[in-house]
Every structure is written in C-alpha cells, then in structure tokens.
Design a protein around this nucleic acid. Structure first.
Lengths: 197, 197, 197, 197
DNA sequence: GACTAACCGAGACGGTACGTCTGGTCTTTAC
DNA sequence: GTAAAGACCAGACGTACCGTCTCGGTTAGTC
C-alpha cells in the first residue's frame, strides 16, 4: 500500500526479501537495534528500494507482520467461550513473547511516539482482530453465555487489557492458571446478571 | 543512587537542573525526540556530567518522574471502592495523556526494549503503587465489597489493564462513562459471589 | 560512431535532443554538476538511450562540442602571422571562458583522470587544430617570418601553453595587451636568428 | 586554517592521520576514485572529524600537498638561468606525473569547476612559487641574462605554460631534449634584444 | 502489408558515496 | 579537582546518481 512510485512495476522478490530479512533481523538483534541499513544488506537490496516503498522501519515491520498474520485463522469458536478466549489469549501471548525480540512489541513501542505508525498498526492489525473478537462475543450473547446488554468495546479491554498491563511493566505474562482465572473473572463480569437467572 | 563516582561530592544543583530540563524538554518535543545533548544544553551542563550519573536518557526521565511523584498521596480511601478506583484511574489517565508528550509513556516505550530500564521502572514506580492498590483492596475485602478469595494480583490487571490496552493501540482513553462501566465490571468480577449473598 | 548497437536504426532526433540538453545544462549548472539523469530528463529521453550510445557524460559533451565545432573555419591566414595568432588565440580564449560553464573546460577537467576521454579529446578536437596551426606555421617559415629550423611541436606549446597555465590556476585569461606581448615573445623565440638576418 | 570550531582544541594526530591517508589513497586509487569515506576509514577517524575541519576532499588534498611541500627549497640559483629553469621544470614535471595518480593534477582538475578550491590552490600553492620564479628572474635581469624590460608575469606563462598545455591534452611531458629547447626558446624570447647587443 | 528485430521512454533495481546527525567517550581549559 | 565545553570515533540516517535491467510501445527495414 505504498504511495509514490508505480506499484505495477514493483519487484515482488525484493519485497519478500526485505520483509523476510526484517523479521529475521528483528528476531536476532531486537527491534531497537534493527536498522534499515542492516535490512538492506541482509536482503541484498538497495536502501533506496526500501525507502521507495516504506517511510520508516516501523512500516516495514508492520507490513512484514501483517503479511505473515493474514493467514491467521478466524477467531476460534468451539461453542465454549471460556475455552475460546483462553486459546486466543495464548496466541496473543505468543506474539508478545519475548518482548525484546517480538516485532509486535517493537511496533507497539515505536507507535507510542509515532502517531502515523500507531494509526496503521491500529487499523491494519488490531481493528480486524477486535472485530473478530466482538463477532465471537455476539455469538456468545446469542447463546446466553454473555449478557445481552454487555458493552463489547469494554469487553475487549477487560479480556485483553491484562496482557498489555503486564507487558508494559514487564510483570511477566500470565501462566495457564492465571489465564484461566482471568477468563473466569471476565466472564463473571460480562455474564448474565444473577437477577436474570 | 548512581553507580560509579562518589555520590557525596555530587553537585545537587546540577542534578536538579538536569531533571528539570529533561521534563521540560520532554513536554516540549516529546520523549522520542528528546536527546541527552539537548538536556545538557538546556541544563547548562556537560554531557559528561549526565553520563557520569545516569546510564541512559530513560534513567534520567525515570528519576525525574520519580522525584516529582514521590509526593503523590496515598491511595484514596473514601470507604466506597468504586469511587476510589474511579478517582485513581483518572489520575493514571492524566499521567498517560497525551501519549506523545507524557514522560511516563516515553518510559514505557523505552522499557519495552530495555530490560534494565524496565526493571527500574517496575520496582521504583510501579510496585509501590501496586502495593498501595492491593492494600486498598484488602480493606475492601474486609468490608465485604470484594470477595475474600479474590486474587489481588489479577485484580490489578483487571482494573488497570484496560488503560494500557487502549494506550498501546491508541484507542483513546476511556471517558467518564466508560470508566464507570469498567469499574462496575471489575467489581462484579471481583465482588462476593451471588451464592454468598 | 558508437560501439555496440546498430547505428542505422538510431533515432537522430533523440541524439540531437541529448546533445542539445547536455550543452544547455552544462551552461546552466556547470560541467561539474551535470548529470546523465538530468540530461535524460531534460531531453525527454531514457537514461538507457544515453548509455546505449555513449559510455560517459564526458563523451556526450565531447560529441556535442565536436558537433558545433566542426563548422569552425580554417586557421586564419592574412599573411601577417602575429595578427593571425592573435585572432586564433582570442577564439580559443572564448572557448575556455567562463571556466565553470565552458563545456571544453569541463572536458579538460574530466580528461585529467579519464585516459579514454583524454585520448578522444586529443584526437578528435585538438590534433586537427594543432595540424592547422602547424600548417599555418609552415607557411610562415616559407615567408621567412619563422625560422626554417623552428620546432613546430614546441611552437604549439609556446603559443598556446600560456593560456592553459592561466586556465588551470585561475590566473585570468590574458587581455589584449598581454596577448599582443605573448605573441611578440613567441615570434621572437621562433623567428629567424639575428645572425640569419 | 579551518573555519568553524576551535582550532586550539584540535587533535593534531587525527589531522596528520587524515592527511597521510589522503595522500596514500590518492596514490593508490587516483584522485578521481578517492572518497572521504575511504580517507576516514584508512585514517581511523570519524567522517565527522573530516567534515569538521575541511569542506571538501579537494581541501584535504590541498592541505596535504601543502604540508609536504612547505619544506621545498628555494628556487635554484646556480648563476646559469637555463640550468636553473631546467632543474625547476623537471621538478614540476615530477609533481604532475603520472597524471592519474598525482594529487596536484587531481587538484587542478577539481579546481576547474570549484572556484573556492581554485582560489586556495592559487594562493597557497602557486603564488608563492610564482613569486620565487620572478625573484630568480629579477636576478637574471641584473646579470643581463634577461632583458631589463621583460614582463615577468608573461615570463611565467612562457616558461611553465608548455607543461600545462601538454598536461591537459595528454600530449606527454617534454623529454630532456624538448625541455632544453623550450628553455632556449624562452630565453631567446626574454633575453636582451639584439639591438642591445 | 505483415513480420520481426531493435530502438525507444519509463523507471525500478543494486550499489556507492554523500553530507548530516546523534550517541557515548575522552581531552582540554578555566575556575 | 571538578566540571564546562566540546572534539572525538562510530555508524545510521535519508538522498543523489551511477550504470544495469526489464517492461510495453513504436518504428523500421525484410520477406
């Protein structure tokens, strides 16, 4: 989705080499020490070619992550909401671990002082996944596992928020037991009211 | 609390000038564009003097924030937990707003790829506040507003997590109404079970 | 006179556009800041087309200069050698002025570290003019204005050398009076010996 | 003689390393292929340090040449002008040979489209040598080897011009015999008039 | 008159060097 | 003897051109 030059004439093999090199280097040296010079060298590509299509290293990594993530399956739906949330939270934890090597965490850090990158990150990576989550929650409302009047926007925060709180202060990701409890708390908060029973 | 040279001979007025300059510059240009060069210039101090006492700009800002935050009052306790949580959450939101000028958000971003800074941030700024929160929650357990068997570590995540989820993806901080709902959901999750009523 | 492709299919209008653009740009920005990119853009031509027919910007300019210079008249011959030398030196001075915009000076500069260009410059532009000069001098020997045993190769150096000495050190081209004196000195050096009188 | 920073605090060993590296690299790869990057790398110096003290590679080479040339002896004076001119011309020829490795020729080429460099080259390297030459010529006027009314400015051109004419068109430097003839011609031009005999 | 070779404009590509910038260290000077 | 001032090494930044290389499209000369 670059801006300036003619996308039709773009060399797809260069694009792939760049995205692959970016992810590999990020895993090797961490997002903070990642440089465009190194990406170009590793990909066997001119720096100009990177700057032609992306405005910053953040956008390169974003596209790289987006590329490998597009094949991600739909939100799990086994019928049991607690199980599905647990599954999905585990997947997110994997994406965020280890923090100093995860490209996603790198993007999060950079987005904190790059409004443009933040917007792209939100719209291209996060919004679609939030939409999937809310769709799953709507199913749960239909099946009565979640209160019909639950605010699904806040539900996102309740379910995923704990991960990010722990991430930003390096408090350690929840283990299986904690995850189970977190899901249970969230469902208790969002479940049908006692009076409805 | 520095490492190498003799702290007794330290020039306190330089220290203050540096911390003040750091916070002011952070507010002016944002944490991302903040440089040690600029801090030194603004503070009328040699770069060497900064590097002598701090290992990185993150640690300078951390100490600056810590300095102004030590005078922060205890966790509020009006007797009504929901009110107190709301008050406290509002205070935290203020610290994190606006994200591109807040020194705390800058620290969070840097800590994401600086384990040492992350540890300092956690131990010096966060842990004490978590302890205060848990203390307040224990009071609430005594008064029956919170279930006696509630896991207070997870309670932190449930209450504060939503803020950080929204922060990292630039989803916008909750407004008053959302905050109220979030507190209500959290208390419903943590409150005494219906069967206990 | 290019090397590789088929000269018969060459597009003459492209050739002209390139040579014209090259000379114009050289006059505008100077030889040093002249680039093949700019020539191509100005001529509305692909860079490939330039590289197909010329190996370097020097050769483009050389051909451009050669093109406009082929119509140059023969060496002047009024019968008075001093007058003719003066006329011809003035013409050369015009070619070399102003140094930073003259394509010929640009070629000279580049030829100083490009042996191939130097050879082309010498054989295509200079040798014919040296030959004309020597022809004129031979006339002068016949009429007794120049010693019969004068070394005409050195005569070239004596007559034209001063211009290049002044050129390379930016000492300013000789004015009319100086030119007259230079011609007089040269003729005195080369003229019939006093004893021959 | 740099402009901006404080020359008193300059690191002399860096300066020497840079000038040495520049001359060596120039001899190795030629002036045209000489780069500031390579000089910095060879000298074990930051590029910034070069740019701090010199505005261009030309000025670096100029200072390097000037440095090694300051120890050059005075103009030779054996009493016989022809001998002295021959000696001195031979020394100049050595400086200009081989053209593609000689730093002086590189400077001449660059000066042709860099007015600032040209001025420095003229004032720092050439003018003093011209002054020495004219001083020697004044001696020759006193001893009657040169006409008292000879124009010494033009004498410079007559004596040295031939070298530069041959240099710029790669016509080959004069050999010993040609040199002798050139000196003879020049002295004939400048010598006392026949009428004065 | 259609075929076909190759020249053409356009411009993306791998490279090299540019000149600038910031980070963190080391040296010099003045108080 | 401390600390300001700031020069230093290191190396990434983003840019400019280089010379090479595909692309379609046109444009000649051949059959």
């Amino acid at each position: 989705m670059p801006a300036s030059p003619n996308p039709l004439r773009r060399n797809e093999s260069s694009r792939r080499a760049i995205l692959d090199a970016a992810l590999k280097l990020c895993a090797e040296v961490g997002y903070g020490r990642l440089t465009i010079e190194a990406i170009a060298a590793r990909a066997g590509v001119s720096k100009k070619t990177i700057y032609r299509w992306w405005p910053s290293k953040g956008r390169v990594i974003l596209e790289a992550v987006d590329d490998v993530a597009t094949v991600v399956a739909d939100y799990p739906d086994t019928g049991d909401l607690a199980t599905d949330l647990h599954t999905q939270l585990t997947a997110v934890i994997d994406l965020l671990t280890p923090p100093d090597r995860s490209p996603v965490v790198g993007l999060i850090a950079e987005a904190l002082h790059d409004a443009d990158l933040a917007q792209q990150l939100r719209e291209r990576l996060i919004r679609p996944r939030i939409a999937q989550f809310k769709e799953r929650m709507r199913q749960a409302q239909l099946s009565g596992q979640v209160a019909a009047d639950a605010d699904l926007d806040l539900a996102v925060d309740l379910v995923y928020g704990p991960l990010y709180h722990r991430l930003v202060f390096h408090l350690g990701m929840p283990d299986a037991r904690e995850l189970e409890s977190l899901v249970a708390y969230a469902l208790r908060a969002l479940g049908p009211t006692s009076s409805a029973r």
